[in-house]
Structures are given as structure tokens and as C-alpha cells.
Design a binder for these strands. Structure first.
Lengths: 227, 227
DNA sequence: ATTGGGGCATTGTGATCACATTGTCAGCGT
DNA sequence: ACGCTGACAATGTGATCACAATGCCCCAAT
């Protein structure tokens, strides 16, 4: 567990902590979260936990069940498809709209991040793969000074995160056609259509590899597993 | 001010109250919101206000400035364009994905809502126009049992709401090609492409009428008004 | 008259407490 | 042995309090 940075409000620290743990899947779907429980673990009062948890709930990262329980939502096949479709819609839009603002130093940073992803894949560090991959996408989209879409995209990531981890951990090997290289090439050529295709392919590759997992249907709650 | 329904948590009541006031533009851009101030007005403790305000902040409806002040964000021309583009992306997607689930009784409800909009326009009730129009769109998209996109769309509405009101109030007359009728016709025929076109045209009509307002640039903060 | 400083008011934050509601489980009755 | 009931534990919620930080404003000094 990371130390709390001193110039950060407690509720922000809690939020970022929970958020990053959800994004990289360290908190699993179905996990129950209680205010007092987390307060005891993190050694703060229940108040900042409430704030963080409610914010995550409003972003769809946790689900408030009935009147008492908060859990990390289970994934269904339909939800998964919809989340991926929305990722493609929003992220291709965000990428194309960031394109005019890309400088060479931004491309350098993206190449550096892509290298970090390769390292994480080589090391088999699933949590780093998720986090650095998200950082790659985010630092691409953030070049657009008008930031409306990134929070929406991150909401999708939050909902996909916990499930992705359990899914990816079932992959024997994370193969990747390097769509990030295609995206970087498109950035260098200022080719919006190629960039859009690269981002969409990148996302679809992830979907395809998850769907190729044997027994993946066991992880979808709403899809009754075949006998 | 509406009475608090008894089976509603206080913070939910506050949230919905602020939210609907933002959506219909009853709270203007630049308006400063303080926890204690609202607590005094609504006669509740500061705690549920904090919750509601922070949630609205995470949805982009209010902006936390520096360390102390919370204000309703000002609109810029660039933000406005991006918000509208994202509305088109997400809402056409949501409409098309809701199409398979539309029953005849759903269409009845939509026609009823469309009629309410006409009444509100005839009465010149700007707040009702906004609220009922949003209800029309929402009740269309909500037919899809997989609800991921609606919260994202509502976040866009929240950011557009306060600005729309001051803009629409400058329209001498709210003319409307009735795109809702086109949408309803597309629903009846189960024509996805026509539905998509109707929704996109509906949104673009709104943009066009706002952009046609003389002196509209005075409302965009980032566009310096001519001397 | 203008400007800088100091004190007061206001604000957000977080801890603690009190309370209502709900889940859980032991113990009793059948 | 099974089911119901009542009490206790746990949980979310909201109010109140204390505190630090920031803004504001009046007053004094130049």
C-alpha cells in the first residue's frame, strides 16, 4: 500500500488508491466493500472512505446494492460488449481530436510508454500491463486541451478493470500485434484515419484475446455456463 | 423547491434537486456553490451537501476551483462543440442499441412526451422544454437493458444544462423541425439508420439554433467579446 | 489617497457520536 | 430435525464539533 502524499486530501488519496486498485484488477468483481472495513484497513475515519466510495459508485466502478451492501459489479457478456463498443466510439474520437495537438516530444513519451508495456508483458506483470497501457491511451488523448471525453473513457476503464484482470490472468501468453506502433506511426504522419483504425484495432485485439479464452463464459455471470 | 420524499436519503434528495436545477439551467454558469450556504438554504447538515456536490463535481457539473471555491463551469466555444459531438456519438449509439427493445407502449410514451414538449414550447416554459426533452431522450435509451451509456450521456447534459438555459432564453422563438417525430417514425419501422439520422439531426438542430443567436459569443468565456 | 498588514469571518475537511435499518445467528418451540 | 423469533452485531447516514487554510475587510501608516 502506497503512503499518503501529504499535500493530498485524505478522501482524494483514498479515491486514487481504490481507483488504481480497481483499474489494474487488484480488487475482484463481487468483492464487497464496507466503509468501516476500509476505514480500519487504511486507518482513517469513515468519512473520507464514504466520499471515495460514493464517487466510485457514481462512476459505475462499484454498485450500491439495495440498502446496505456495496460490491464491485459482476461482468456480463452484454455489459462487456457494450463497454468495448463505447471504448471504441469514445477513444477513436478522442484520439482523432488529440491528433492536431501532438508534438514530437509527446510521441517520444508514447514510445517510451509502449516500451514499458513490452517490458511488463515480458515480465508477465499483469497489473503493470493494465496500468501502463491505460497511461499510454490517456497521455495520447490528454493532448487535446478540451477535456470532456477522458473522464468518460476512464469510467469505462473502471468498469472493465476488475474483470480484465481475472480474464487476462487466464491467458497463457499475452500476444500483441503492436497496434501502439501503428498508432504512433499514424501520429507521425498526422493520418487521422490510420490513427482511428489503429486505436480500434488495439481495442478489438484485446476483446478478441479475452473471448478466445477457454471457459471464459464462466466469468460472465449472466451467461449460464454450458453443462 | 420540492419537498423531500421521505423514503429518499437526504444526500440523494440534495443531489437530485441540484441536478435537476442544473439540467434545466436554473443555476447559471459561474454561480458559486458553498456547502454551508446550501445547507442553510435546504435546512440540512453540511454532510449530505458535501456528498451531492462532490458527486456533481465528478460528473463535471461543478468545478472545484483551487482550494476553496466550487462554481458551475463557464462554457467555451470549444467545450460546447466537443460536448455536442460527444452527444451525437453516444446518443446515436444508445438509440440504435435501444431500438430492438422498443415495444409499442414505449412508443406511446414517447409520443406523449413529445406532445408535452410541444406544450412547453407553446407556453414558452424554457425549463420544462429542457427537462421534458431530456426525459424523451432518456426514456428512449433506457429501453436497452444494458445501461452503460446513459450515465455518460447524462454527464454531458449536466455540463450543457446551465449554458443552454441562458442561450435558449435569447431565442425569440423556439422553432423546431420535429425530429422527434422522425425518430418515432423510425422506431415504428425498426429502421436503425433513419433513427440514427433523426437523433443526430435533433441534436444538430439545437446546436444550429444556439449558434444562430446574435451575440452568442458573449456567452463563451474563452471568446473575448469585442469592445 | 493608496497600500500593506493584521485580525475576523467563512469555508472545506475529517473525526466522533447517535440513530435507524438490516443481516446474522443462537435458542426455543413444534 | 426443521423453522421461526428475538436479540445482538454490523453498517450506512447524518449531525455536530474542532481545526487549518483561505479570503475579506477595516484600519493605520506613509
Amino acid at each position: 500500500m502506497q503512503e499518503k502524499s501529504s499535500d493530498l486530501k485524505t478522501h482524494q488519496w483514498v479515491y486514487q488508491l481504490l481507483r488504481s486498485n480497481l483499474l489494474c484488477g487488484r480488487i475482484e468483481p463481487g468483492k464487497a466493500l464496507t466503509i468501516r472495513g476500509l476505514a480500519a484497513v487504511l486507518d482513517v475515519s469513515p468519512m473520507p472512505i464514504r466520499e471515495a466510495l460514493h464517487r466510485l459508485a457514481s462512476e459505475g466502478a462499484v454498485e450500491v446494492k439495495g440498502n446496505r451492501r456495496m460490491i464491485v459489479p459482476d461482468m456480463t457478456a452484454e455489459k462487456f460488449n457494450e463497454l468495448c463498443e463505447l471504448r471504441i466510439l469514445l477513444e477513436t474520437h478522442a484520439a482523432v481530436n488529440a491528433l492536431p495537438y501532438i508534438e514530437t516530444e509527446d510521441i517520444d513519451r508514447l514510445e517510451q510508454l509502449d516500451k514499458q508495456i513490452d517490458d511488463a508483458i515480458a515480465a508477465g506483470n499483469i497489473e503493470d500491463i493494465s496500468l501502463v497501457n491505460q497511461e499510454f491511451h490517456r497521455s495520447l488523448y490528454m493532448n487535446n486541451p478540451v477535456q470532456i471525453s477522458v473522464p468518460l473513457i476512464e469510467s469505462l476503464w473502471l468498469q472493465l478493470g476488475p474483470f480484465s484482470r481475472v480474464a487476462i490472468s487466464r491467458l497463457e501468453k499475452v500476444y500483441l500485434v503492436d497496434r501502439h506502433q501503428e498508432a504512433i506511426a499514424a501520429l507521425k504522419q498526422k493520418d487521422a484515419e490510420a490513427l482511428k483504425q489503429a486505436i480500434e484495432s488495439d481495442i478489438r485485439d484485446g476483446i478478441a484475446s479475452i473471448k478466445s479464452i477457454k471457459g471464459i463464459h464462466d466469468f460472465f455471470m449472466a451467461t449460464p455456463e454450458p453443462i
